[in-house]
Amino acid sequence: MELTGRIALVTGSTSGIGRATAHALAARGAHVLVSGRSEERGAQVVAAIRADGGKADFLAADLHDADSARDLAERAVRTGGRVDILVNNAGIGAFGPTEATAEADFDAMYATNVKVPFFLVAALAPAMADRGEGVIVNLTTMVAGFGQAGAALYGSSKAAVSLLTKAWAAEFGPRGVRVNAVAPGPTRTEGTAPMGDGLEQLASRAPAARVADPEEIAQAIAYLAGPGASFVHGTVLPVDGGRAAV
């Protein structure tokens, strides 16, 4: 129960990696603020955490711009009293040829994947720094680290998150706020289900040669959020079955 007394906001936590992260943090004692668009799914996650003896509340949020990020941050502070741990998990992914990408899709990708985390950190990190402690864990992707055909838009948006992670570590680390990121490989979630066999093919190129379960990614996030990672700042941790090694 290493996170007892901590308030954790996990964006996009009504499904997939975010939901698994909410459970993992709650199991370690954190009071988890579950966030997402679906009231029904949010209620289910909260009920499951409480049934296991954990603490959780749901905050509905459709994160797509700076105002929606600021609004969520304000409601999270009102609900929890403060935010000690921020997990920037909410994001969207789309793959396809560069020439087939519409401007609206480009703008939506960068708004959700880059702008929202930026303004959530802007809203919450200063108070963490004033208290002299806090943790931010960002979610990026393995395809932010190498070229992948069809992933120019998604990969570049997450590459921005990787750089933001390092910049924020330099900015807030001296005042007690640890900022790190996790870069997952292919993971079986509701969001990746449409990829079908393509997910297995992508995973086959890594030493582990299999697709991850969301809980495996969540364990890495929970590690970075906990005291066991007290000397870890500004890192992007690959949790990709070894794809970064080949």
Rank of each mutant, 00 (worst) to 15 (best):
T4L: 12
T4A: 15
G5A: 05
G5T: 09
A26Q: 07
G29F: 10
L33R: 01
L33D: 08
V45A: 05
V46N: 13
V46S: 11
I49H: 06
R50Y: 04
A51L: 08
A51Y: 03
K55D: 08
F58P: 08
D62G: 07
L72W: 09
G80R: 11
G81A: 14
D84H: 12
I92D: 06
A94M: 14
T101L: 15
A108P: 01
A108T: 14
Y110K: 05
A125P: 11
E133D: 15
G134S: 04
T140K: 00
T141W: 03
V143I: 15
A144L: 03
A151D: 14
S156R: 06
S156K: 09
K166I: 09
A167K: 05
W168A: 02
W168F: 13
A170V: 14
E171F: 04
F172G: 01
N180C: 09
A183D: 12
P184V: 04
R188P: 00
G196R: 10
G198M: 10
L199R: 13
V211E: 06
A212F: 06
I217W: 03
A220V: 06
I221M: 04
A222E: 01
L224I: 00
H233I: 10
T235S: 10
V236S: 02
G242Y: 05
A244H: 15
A244Y: 13
